Amino acid sequence: MATNQEEVKLLGAMGSAFVCRVQIALKLKGIEYKFVQENIANKSDLLLKYNPVYKKIPVFVHNEKPISESLVILEYIDDTWKQNPILPSEPYQRALARFWSKFIDEKVKMLSFKLWSSVHVVDDDKERAKNVAETFEALQFLENELKEKFFGGEEIGFVDIAAVFIAFWIPLIQDVTGLQLLTAEKFPKLYQWSQKFLNHPIVEQCLPPRDPVFSYFKAHYDSLFLSK
């Protein structure tokens, strides 16, 4: 637990997968913190002060020391509060956890956003098919890597937390666009993992309400068509 001498703040916004990562880690560790709601369209002076380089959320502030980038924040939290570790203790397994978490951000997330932005382009079936195939390939790597109940073993760990985007946000993209990306038929292990992860009592408490996030995605998706 954070002591009385410690000040812990999290600058974030509802609906951000990256903010959700940090919230899950803090909840797992039992760390009390102050949540500072940010408006991304009108960034606060506090956000610009704490993250002048990227000017993005989340920003984690521990005793007035700000840290940016969600995966970096997760490592800092795990190094600072030792209870309920989320990274493996063995160096090789720690390296693998970092590798797959980076893979999720640089491949799965980026491909999903690329697919999201291109799916409304009705006259580019070839590009859309290419994006779908690359997304399937990335998800297959994770399907093959999943050996136990969670990526972290019997308990959720660093990679599971990093993959909250896959479990919660990719199904939203599916429902909005009609694309079938993460299904029990295509990726049975990954799909089962996603259900267990989303139903974990700690994770459940940290996920944003689905309906407002879905409505936001749907409105944005519809606006892409109207702009054509």
Rank of each mutant, 00 (worst) to 15 (best):
A2C: 09
T3Y: 03
Q5G: 04
Q5R: 10
Q5T: 13
L11V: 11
F18L: 13
R21T: 06
R21V: 10
R21G: 09
A25H: 03
L26G: 02
K27H: 09
L28C: 05
G30C: 11
G30F: 09
I31P: 05
Y33V: 11
F35K: 05
E38C: 07
N39R: 10
I40R: 14
I40D: 01
A41H: 12
A41E: 09
N42F: 12
K43W: 03
K43D: 09
S44G: 10
D45H: 04
L46T: 06
L47E: 07
K49P: 00
N51M: 06
V53F: 04
V53P: 01
Y54M: 05
P58W: 12
V59T: 14
V59H: 07
F60K: 08
H62G: 06
H62V: 07
K65Q: 12
L71V: 07
V72A: 15
I77Y: 11
D78W: 03
D79T: 07
T80E: 06
K82M: 10
N84E: 14
N84A: 13
N84G: 01
N84V: 12
P88G: 06
S89N: 13
S89I: 13
S89F: 11
S89L: 12
P91E: 03
Q93A: 14
R94A: 14
R94S: 10
R94C: 11
R94G: 03
A95F: 14
A97Y: 10
F99V: 04
W100G: 00
S101G: 15
F103H: 01
K107P: 00
K107Y: 11
V108L: 08
K109Y: 15
M110N: 15
M110T: 14
L111S: 09
L111Y: 15
S112A: 13
F113Q: 10
F113N: 12
K114H: 12
W116F: 09
S117Q: 11
V121M: 07
V122E: 12
D123I: 04
D125V: 14
K126F: 13
K126Q: 14
R128W: 02
R128T: 15
A133L: 13
A133C: 05
T135D: 01
E137S: 15
E137F: 10
A138Y: 09
L139H: 08
L142A: 08
L142W: 02
E143C: 09
N144G: 06
E148K: 15
E148A: 14
F151S: 11
E154N: 15
E155Y: 13
V159A: 08
V159S: 09
A162Y: 05
F165Y: 15
I166Y: 06
I166D: 05
A167E: 04
F168K: 02
W169M: 01
I170G: 02
Q174S: 14
D175G: 10
T177S: 12
G178S: 01
G178H: 03
Q180G: 01
L181H: 07
L182T: 03
L182D: 07
T183Y: 05
E185P: 01
K186F: 02
P188L: 04
K189L: 10
L190Y: 05
L190R: 12
Y191V: 00
S194Q: 09
Q195G: 07
Q195C: 11
L198G: 08
P201I: 08
P201L: 07
P209N: 08
R210L: 00
D211K: 09
D211N: 04
D211H: 06
P212D: 00
V213Y: 02
F214I: 06
S215N: 08
F217Y: 14
F217K: 00
K218T: 00
H220W: 00
D222Y: 00
S223M: 03
L226K: 13
L226M: 07
